[in-house]
Amino acid sequence: MSENSSAAGQTCTISLELNGERRELQVQPWTTLLDLLRDQLGLTGTKKGCDHGQCGACTVLLDGRRINSCLTLAVMHDGASLTTIEGLASEATLHPLQAAFVKHDAFQCGYCTPGQICSAAGLAAENRASSRDEIREHMSGNLCRCGAYPNILAAIEDALPTLRGQEGAQ
């Protein structure tokens, strides 16, 4: 990370592996990861629902783990690897979770959906939730005001074996 000061204050250069691509980025210290994605890079798939870690709409995968991108500063993640909803699957095909969300109608307005899907991807990687009640609990950091929870549960249940199979194969 390098720094320089200007009239607008300190700016820092960080390097991020963003959806598989190495990027050098100029950020101000107070730029959250979420604002970097949405306002600076135009990656608006990651949503701002509350900006305070209380809804989960901004969930992304940082070094493979799910986090709230609204409550961390971009400058703190020099050298990290970041996956957002835009980078979850290759261009042509849907990620198994994305396909399962469509199949089970696991959303209505769609605004919490990228966060739900990234969160579910994190859940799959953690491998700590298998039963329905466990999945419910481990998905409770993602609010859905439309109330599509039962369908979200069904979609994740449906996709989990595929995801765990993929991991087993790797």
Binding site: L43, E86, L94, F101, G110
Partner: peptide, 9 residues
């Protein structure tokens, strides 16, 4: 509109 919503587009 499902595919657009699940891909963040």
């Amino acid at each position: 509109d499902g595919p657009l919503k699940v891909t963040g587009k």
